[in-house]
């Protein structure tokens, strides 16, 4: 049961044509989807704590419609891979992904999920170097761990990808970081 054999093959995933395939209706659907993403509570390691923090009062992901964290993959459409994916865990990740109903999206949160992060070193034997070896990833959020702002930005990008338009203002480039200087 080598992890490699379990890789979900993207081209094989056939998504049937939507019943209602009229441009404007689809746009409305996409808009609704992007504004009410239901992420799966799928915490793997340290990054999961930041994912929890994002759901709590200070960062409040509910402002952007994605606060309904579901423990069951069957009820969610966004998988936030928050942490290191080990080879032992890989089959479970793939299975969870396959249990999610389409349309579904994946966010790789943190360096571990992107590329193995700090745990890629000579003689490492146990981790997947990036969850995109297993399942297709839509948004990559770098950081170790990414700050909650990073996760939110990742969510905006995903919304942009789904609905074709960014809804929230860009973070000011010379804004708060320069304050007081």
């Amino acid at each position: 049961m080598a992890a490699q054999n379990l890789v979900a093959q993207k081209p094989d995933v056939i998504v049937a044509d939507p019943l209602l395939n009229i441009g404007p209706a689809k746009q409305i659907m996409d808009l609704c989807r992007s504004m009410s993403l239901w992420p799966m509570t799928f915490g793997l390691a340290c990054c999961a704590i930041e994912m929890m923090a994002v759901g709590m009062a200070r960062w409040d992901i509910a402002r952007f419609g994605a606060e309904v964290f579901r423990p069951s993959p069957r009820q969610s459409d966004l998988m936030i891979v928050a942490g290191t994916v080990t080879k032992k865990m890989a089959p479970a990740v793939v299975r969870l992904y396959e249990q999610m109903p389409a349309p579904r999206w994946v966010m790789a949160l943190g360096n571990c999920a992107i590329s193995g992060g700090p745990f890629k070193f000579k003689d490492q034997y146990g981790i997947m170097e990036g969850v995109d070896h297993l399942i297709p990833v839509d948004v990559y959020v770098p950081g170790c761990p990414p700050r909650p702002e990073g996760l939110l930005e990742g969510l905006f990008l995903l919304q942009e990808k789904i609905a074709g338009k960014r809804f929230w203002p860009n973070a000011p480039l010379d804004g708060p970081f320069e304050e007081g200087k």
Binding site: M1, A2, T86, K87, K88, Y125, G126
Partner: peptide
Amino acid sequence: LMDPDMADC
């Protein structure tokens, strides 16, 4: 701790 598949490494 190890995956049984590679338990002998």
